[in-house]
């Protein structure tokens, strides 16, 4: 049985951006971190860019493809790491969707990135607490994670916006 799958131009773009995000995701995972659980989340630069250029649905595709394919490449698929990653991605997508559909005219990349980043770490923290380490001690990490979340959220937004300025409309 032959089945034709129609690949649209949008599919190709999603695949291309997801590929970029996956490369960043995999590269970043090999960076040493001074503190377990704290990393810049540079792949979200791509998610941000895509969100602002093509909208929320597109960003959700890129982000979820990145988490899934990234975990397959790293060998963490279906492991605790994967579920932490997935919960973070879902939470930050939800935060993006809420901002995008409510106060879109008043926020730019910075606000969306910071809020998405905080949602990301908080979701991961809660999942880690519920599923893996049911101890209140883990919640003591909250302020540290929020602080680094704000920093890297802003950092990624700055990079994303400077890329955005340089992107031509043909992309």
């Amino acid at each position: 049985m032959k089945k034709n799958i129609n690949i649209t131009e949008e599919d190709r773009k999603i695949a291309a951006f997801a590929a970029l995000a996956i490369v960043i995701h995999v590269l970043e995972s090999s960076f040493p971190s001074p503190f377990p659980g704290i990393k810049p989340g540079l792949a979200n630069i791509i998610t941000l860019l895509v969100l602002f250029r093509y909208g929320w649905r597109f960003a959700a595709w890129v982000s979820l493809l990145r988490v899934t394919a990234g975990s397959l490449l790293l060998g963490t698929f279906m492991s605790p790491t994967f579920f932490l990653s997935l919960s973070g991605a879902l939470a930050s997508l939800l935060a993006m969707l809420l901002l995008w559909s409510s106060i879109r005219p008043w926020v730019g990349m910075a606000g969306i990135s910071i809020l998405a980043s905080i949602s990301h770490v908080m979701a991961q923290l809660l999942v880690a607490w519920w599923l893996f380490i049911p101890h209140r001690g883990i919640l003591a990490l909250t302020p540290i994670l929020i602080a680094t979340g704000i920093f890297f959220g802003l950092f990624n937004a700055i990079i994303a916006s400077s890329i955005e300025k340089r992107l031509t409309d043909t992309v």
Binding site: V107, A110, I114, L141, T142, I146, G149
Partner: peptide, 28 residues
């Protein structure tokens, strides 16, 4: 100069910075 900050961006930045000491006092 680095990024275009709108009103909502500043608001989110300051509110989330407030979360740091708040969550500190709640969890430590």
């Amino acid at each position: 100069a680095m990024i275009k900050m709108k009103v909502g961006d500043w608001l989110i930045l300051f509110l989330s910075l407030l979360l740091v000491p708040l969550s500190w006092s709640m969890t430590q």
